[in-house]
Design a protein around this nucleic acid. Structure first.
Length: 577
RNA sequence: CGGGAUGUAGCGCAGCUUGGUAGCGCACCUCGCUUGGGACGAGGGGGUCGCAGGUUCAAAUCCUGUCAUCCCGACCA
């Protein structure tokens, strides 16, 4: 490809609406163009990158025994009603009507479709196991798309679905996919960590996420990990042992008493007023889960992890209650306390979920639904309710690994892949069954496995860049090399460059010839920004019969003969396959 | 949906306070000059100033409404 004809417009400045590195770089270097929030055109360079990633995914999925197909993007409501998700998926599911007023939706994921495909085709245990996948645009109407390709509404995803006769088969395929995923990301130039996670709207029992750990602020997930053993988990799923699990307020309170605690609306106020540590306060938070009130009880120095709380009550949607909602809930229970003084005592018609940290508290401080008062020196028998304990706590760095007891660390991660054990979550309600050797029907045991293709591309940028631009890993770069004649009016330079370019093309290397009548600085800046892994420059060193070969990743520059430059690049490209 | 901000050429911005019919840099076209890290000079093309009302002789500018976008919180590949 000749640079003069390549459809790319680099920008001298970063777009003002970009926040994270990958978005800034991809927009400035002419890879993407925004059409609407979270909706981007993939310009030719971007499309080449995405196709490279797709091909790596394809090769590894095929090698792992999966078969590619392509399902419809627009889906009828009926299937979603069969699985029960039409009502619970929420606003991320883009719903629309066709001309006959039939309800449809844009596919955010394809469990329903693949399950219906499977039940029509997979009738016998002899046909199982099967793993089917597709690479396709998905649409999720995210509340707030941001970070460019990292959180688009329309994005490219590889989604695979496995069907087995039993759990054992699923476990095996799950392992198989985990291995394939690690390989895929490695080939894309990304080191990933496989972490335990919550299974969210997709559902199922076990799930893991593949996280790219970056030092940029683009990582949206907190990942907790242990340096001593293999434990790692997303913050929405991480568990830990508390270093100081048993707390007793007996040093502060000799006996149980109701105390005046005026204007202590926050835990901090209360600590200051009573001159006590927050560890001996029982904190009560009011949440709304699926429109119903839930009280969350937790030791006050710890925070509630909302996903865990939601799961504790089998909910789909959670948010903290507004002041007005709290007032209404209090009124329904015959109280009028304001936030800061709320507690479980006397609360009816609300779910009360206590974190495990509450279990070992003694002689603590708790709200009793009276404004400006707290009960101090309280114990569980004073709460007037039998508590149900769950782990709803947000883990913090420094807490101890649940497996080996060593301190946990936290880091930011970009989730590029996710694997789930679905079990019969879809096959059962959708009556997707096979016949065993005795002629008995059983629902398939399913798994599903996603990779964000466009997100992986963005993550690759987050992991490989410098001040001058992108440093694509060779395997996913839009082109392998740019050949730069410094001055196209210099006959020797131009002839040498064209010669190198043609040799590279002949050898199957993806090369660009920068044949633009631009000054050297412009060409070099563009080459760095776009991120060609190699740059071969035909310039003044030709007087010694040499060209320059620059490696973008390391910045290393060598003066070598044109022949050596060609062989060097060819060798590198052959090396990635 | 709550909190904050912004809409002026493909990109980045000024002009608005104090109304007088739109400007700068980059990019684009032409010519000259230049050719190893985003040169320079001259000339040129491109904008119903988000949209709709209103005030006024006159609105990018003032008023009202509306739409959109971006950032911070609840979603997820």
């Amino acid at each position: 490809m000749k640079m003069s004809k390549l459809f790319v417009q680099t920008q001298r400045e970063f777009p003002s609406d970009a926040e994270v590195i990958s978005h800034k770089m991809l927009a400035r270097a002419g890879y993407i163009r925004k059409l609407a929030p979270g909706v981007y055109t993939f310009l030719p360079l971007m499309w080449r990158v995405l196709k490279k990633i797709e091909n790596i995914v394809r090769q590894e999925m095929d090698a792992a025994g999966a078969q590619e197909l392509l399902m419809p993007f627009v889906q009828p409501k009926e299937l979603w009603e069969e699985s029960g998700r039409w009502d619970v998926y929420g606003k991320e599911l883009m719903r629309l009507k066709d001309r006959h007023n039939r309800d449809m939706c844009l596919g955010p994921t394809h469990e329903e479709i693949i399950t219906s495909v499977a039940r029509d085709g997979l009738k016998s245990y002899k046909q199982l196991p099967v793993n089917l996948y597709q690479i396709q645009s998905k649409f999720r109407d995210e509340i707030r798309p941001r970070y460019g390709l990292l959180r688009g509404r329309e994005f490219i995803m590889k989604d695979a679905y496995s069907f087995d006769v039993d759990e054992k088969g699923l476990d095996k395929e799950y392992e198989n996919m985990a291995k394939a995923y690690t390989k895929i990301f490695k080939r894309c130039g990304l080191d990933t960590k496989m972490v335990q996670s919550d299974s969210g709207a997709i559902g199922g029992s076990v799930s893991h996420e593949f996280m790219v750990i970056t030092d940029t602020d683009a990582g949206e997930n907190d990942v907790f990990y242990c340096n001593e053993c293999d434990y790692s988990a997303n913050s929405n799923h991480a568990v830990s042992k508390l270093p100081d699990a048993v707390v007793d307020g007996k040093d502060y309170f000799k006996e149980k008493a109701v105390k005046d605690t005026p204007n202590t609306f926050s835990i901090e106020d209360l600590c200051n007023f009573l001159k006590i540590p927050s560890t001996i306060i029982l904190k009560t938070l009011v949440y709304i889960v699926d429109k119903k009130p839930v009280l969350a009880l937790i030791r006050a120095d710890k925070a509630v992890e909302e996903t865990k709380l939601m799961n504790a009550v089998n909910g789909n949607d959670i948010r903290i209650a507004s002041a007005a909602e709290i007032a209404e809930i209090m009124e329904n229970n015959g109280f009028n306390a304001v936030p800061g003084f709320i507690g479980p005592k006397g609360m009816k018609n609300v779910s009360i979920i206590a974190d495990e940290t509450v279990k070992d508290m003694k002689n603590f401080v708790v709200g009793i639904n009276e404004t400006d008062k707290h009960l101090v020196g309280a114990n569980h028998s004073d709460l007037g309710v039998e508590l149900k304990y769950f782990d709803i706590r947000l883990v913090e760095q420094g807490e101890l690994c649940p497996q080996c007891g060593k301190p946990l660390f936290v880091t930011k991660g970009i989730e590029v892949g996710n694997i789930f054990k679905l079990g019969t979550k879809y096959s059962k309600p959708m009556n997707a069954v096979y016949l065993d050797e005795n002629g008995k029907t059983h629902p398939y045991i399913m798994g599903c496995y996603g990779i964000g293709i466009s997100r992986t591309a963005a993550a690759a940028v987050e992991a490989h860049y410098d001040d001058d631009g992108i440093k694509w890993p060779l395997a996913v770069a839009p082109y392998h090399v740019v050949v730069v004649p410094v001055n196209i009016n210099d006959e020797l330079q131009m002839k040498t460059a064209v010669n190198i370019y043609e040799q590279l093309l002949k050898a199957g290397v993806e090369a660009v010839l920068d044949d633009r009548d631009e000054r050297a600085g412009v060409k070099f800046k563009d080459a760095d920004l776009i991120g060609f892994p190699f740059r071969i420059t035909a310039g003044k060193t030709l007087q010694e019969g040499l060209v320059e070969c620059k490696v973008r990743e390391s910045g290393e520059v060598t003066k070598i003969t044109p022949e050596d430059a060609v062989s060097k690049v060819i060798a590198a490209v052959r090396n990635i396959g």
